[in-house]
Design a protein around this nucleic acid. Structure first.
Lengths: 149, 149
DNA sequence: TGACTCATGTCAGTATTCTGACATAGATTA
DNA sequence: TAATCTATGTCAGAATACTGACATGAGTCA
């Protein structure tokens, strides 16, 4: 019943499985971030800034997998609420380097603990070898999809 | 600069890599489905129905990773345009079993060819062993996230 | 130098998805 | 049996993200 010669058998499709895994991860992250009043995109933005201070709006957008318009709206809110700062004028070009404020860093700390617990849970039951295999295979998938576009 | 003791190193995070892969896959699917005037959710709905005729609105929603309200809106449009049919009254309970029309099947055929090409591209460069490893590891991740919830 | 291309930040409007809510049908349980 | 719980289909409104568009600054190239 599941395979009739036509179509893609979803139960055997690696693409569908990838989507299932990603969906499960996102749901788990939303669950632990909700009590902190933070969305996944919100968290991603802060985490990116913690690791690479001075990232621009467009760079943050690409890192968080949203458009730069969407990230711009988020950054304006974060700036208004004192989580990040941006210079009034661009030091060079039009790029506005963004940085976390102490308040933003404090807010991120709690979120990081929550998200780390999710990642640890996801890795539970996987050997070191399986983890590095997963890393290598996922990178291969990304490369194939990007290059063949 | 990338790791300062605090936060999650995104370059080493399997969760972030999973998101990147899923995002790349979705973008590739959107690219090949756009010329057909079809969204990923739209395609997922038809593909699910091809494999499991009679699926209900709620079941389709879970299979396509959207809420049942969102799927309901899509189904009403698909029904209006003659791609699927639903009985006027539920045979049992409130569940309305949905089925593809010949028109829906024809529409799906083209989409399946397009999506299959993306999946083939994604699998390019992966050995049989790597594919089955990926399958097993992704299933392990899903299970861990679900059970520990 | 000047024309061209590309990337950025931002505003506005549109589209999509979600949350909240309700009535209803079947299953479960006291 | 009666009450309770769970799941479904659906409507309406809210939240979220996207597309389109514009001005501007930097790099490329003839």
């Amino acid at each position: 019943m599941s395979q009739n010669g036509v179509g893609i058998d979803l139960d055997k499709s690696l693409g569908y499985l990838l989507k299932r895994a990603s969906s499960a991860l996102r749901a788990a992250m939303e669950e632990v971030l909700r009590p902190l009043g933070m969305s996944v995109t919100h968290y991603s933005c802060l985490e990116l800034l913690a690791q690479r201070p001075g990232l621009s709006n467009s760079e943050l957008a690409r890192g968080a997998f949203v458009t730069r318009q969407t990230m711009n709206v988020l950054l304006q809110a974060l700036e208004r609420d004192g989580y990040v700062t941006r210079p009034a004028e661009a030091p060079v070009g039009k790029v506005l380097p963004t940085r976390l404020t102490p308040r933003g860093r404090r807010s991120l700390e709690k979120a990081t603990v929550a998200v780390r617990s999710v990642e640890v849970r996801m890795l539970a039951g996987m050997t070191e070898t399986e983890q590095s295999d997963a890393f290598r295979i996922l990178q291969s998938m990304i490369r194939s999809l990007r290059d063949g576009g």
